[in-house]
């Protein structure tokens, strides 16, 4: 089983992202579970959301303490939150940042993947809603969900033209990662 923890800020759509990744895993033919940190959410406050992906039915209802993969939606969180907490050995951290993996304020043995998801979102959506771009980076870097499934889920989540634009953002992040 692969466990994923998403760090974001209230309003950045961490819960939507968890939901999209869980759905894309299901579309990819896997079992999955997506859930928020069940907190009281405020705009801008650091929040977490979780995804579990496995090849067999997932019944674990405890919180995620030892993620395989951490996604950081907002690099300003690196100073505030211990994003590496409990990360498994050989784990991966995917960060939305304009900097390269070596330039981040992270001392870790984990593999770091960076993607400028905010820039990609601004290009395709005109707004810094970088979830779908990060979904593309996740698909490419982990291989846990396939690109076609991710695109299908994004189109279901955001209808019409906005969906198409989000798929483009996801695809560009997938290409550059």
């Amino acid at each position: 089983m692969k466990q994923i923890r998403i760090h974001g800020r209230g309003g950045q759509g961490s819960v939507t992202m968890a939901s999209m990744l869980a759905k894309a895993a299901f579309e990819t033919g896997k079992e999955s579970q997506g859930f928020p940190s069940f907190g009281v959410e405020r705009l801008g406050a650091p929040i977490e959301a979780f995804v579990r992906i496995d090849n067999k039915k997932i019944t674990d209802r405890s919180q995620v303490y030892n993620p395989d993969i951490v996604i950081v939606q907002d690099s300003s969180l690196l100073k505030l939150v211990d994003v590496e907490k409990g990360l498994k050995e050989g784990g991966m951290i995917i960060v939305n940042s304009s900097e390269g993996p070596g330039d981040l304020d992270l001392e870790t043995d984990a593999e770091i993947v960076t993607v400028n998801a905010t820039d990609i979102a601004m290009k395709h959506l005109g707004r810094p809603i970088m979830n779908t771009a990060l979904c593309g980076a996740f698909a490419k870097a982990t291989g846990l969900v396939d690109r076609e499934s991710m695109a299908r889920v994004i189109k279901e989540t955001f209808e019409g033209e906005i969906g198409e634009k989000n798929v483009k953002a996801m695809s560009e992040a997938y290409e550059v990662c």
């Binding site: 939901s19 869980a22 079992e31 999955s32 579970q33 997506g34 859930f35 069940f38 209802r61």
Partner: peptide, 8 residues
């Protein structure tokens, strides 16, 4: 735990 989890 169940009301807000996404699952199949």
């Amino acid at each position: 735990i169940l009301t807000h989890v996404q699952e199949k």
